[in-house]
């Protein structure tokens, strides 16, 4: 990119609390792409859990909070397809009755990207810093895939790592069964969907299962470990691409 663009980084509540190094990994990638990164200190959650549970009121407040924190940036980038989908697709819908706000949210939505989508289509990252060596398969998380058309982007970036071999599993685009609160409310169903996914991963015979949404990855990891698979690595795409794959 010609001029250094200012990117507001939204780490997402899940990465913030569960796997902070994924946040640092994403920042390393964005810096490698020549961006100036700002992390608004008061950020919390995009509001998706409440929104998807039918709780609109607090979602609206969270969206407004998000707008006030991120509107100033050239771009907003998130290491999650489902949170990015929330901002790009669903925030504007929440403000249908208010043209001024809706316009501001639409403008924000247009500048908001899932990490790999941003790296490929906006930042046009050429040199990927990671050094992962081994075989992996990619799980396409639902919101990123169907709301944001994220499919080729992570694969294109992974292809830039000479040590990586991608083996596609069958049904890579089928839901892993996470679904936020669904995973607890409908535990047996969610577990079965995770089990199906784990069998496809096993059949692919890879060192690592990689994805772009931590929720799905925790679900998959939880099922793999419960069924005695302690060797298949479960990695966020940012970890693989950045070379930063350990929590400090």
């Amino acid at each position: 990119m010609e001029n250094k663009v200012r990117v507001g980084f939204f780490v997402t509540c899940l990465v913030d609390s569960m796997r902070p190094h994924i946040g640092f990994a994403a920042i390393r990638l964005l810096e490698a792409a020549g961006c100036e990164i700002v992390v608004p200190a008061q950020q919390t959650c995009c509001g998706q859990p409440g929104y998807n549970s039918g709780e609109r009121k607090s979602t609206v407040s969270m969206a407004l909070k998000f707008l006030s924190e991120f509107e100033e940036f050239d771009y907003v980038v998130l290491p999650s397809g489902s949170c990015a989908g929330m901002i790009r697709v669903h925030y504007p819908e929440l403000f249908r009755g208010d043209p001024e706000l809706q316009q501001r949210f639409t403008s924000l939505a247009k500048r908001t990207y899932e990490l790999t989508d941003f790296l490929v289509n906006v930042a046009k990252l050429e040199n990927v810093p990671g050094n992962f060596k081994g075989t992996l398969t990619y799980h396409d998380s639902c919101s990123g895939l169907r709301e944001l058309d994220v499919y080729n982007q992570p694969r294109a970036l992974l292809a830039k790592l000479p040590g990586v071999k991608i083996y596609e599993m069958v049904e890579s685009t089928t839901c892993c069964g996470f679904g936020g609160t669904f995973s607890v409310k409908y535990g047996e169903l969610s577990t079965r969907m995770a089990e199906n996914k784990c069998q496809h991963i096993a059949a692919a015979g890879v060192d690592a299962i990689v994805g772009g949404d931590l929720g799905c990855l925790l679900n998959i990891e939880g099922r793999l470990r419960r069924t005695g698979d302690h060797s298949t690595q479960v990695l966020h795409i940012a970890e693989v691409l950045s070379g930063l794959d350990k929590d400090k």
Partner: peptide, 23 residues
């Protein structure tokens, strides 16, 4: 969250939040 843990382990968080580490 037994709905989760009846069929899956729950991967533990790493112990610090991104925001505190970043700050």
């Amino acid at each position: 969250a037994t709905g989760w843990t009846d069929g899956r382990d729950f991967p533990a968080p790493s112990g610090k939040t991104f925001r505190e580490m970043y700050r």
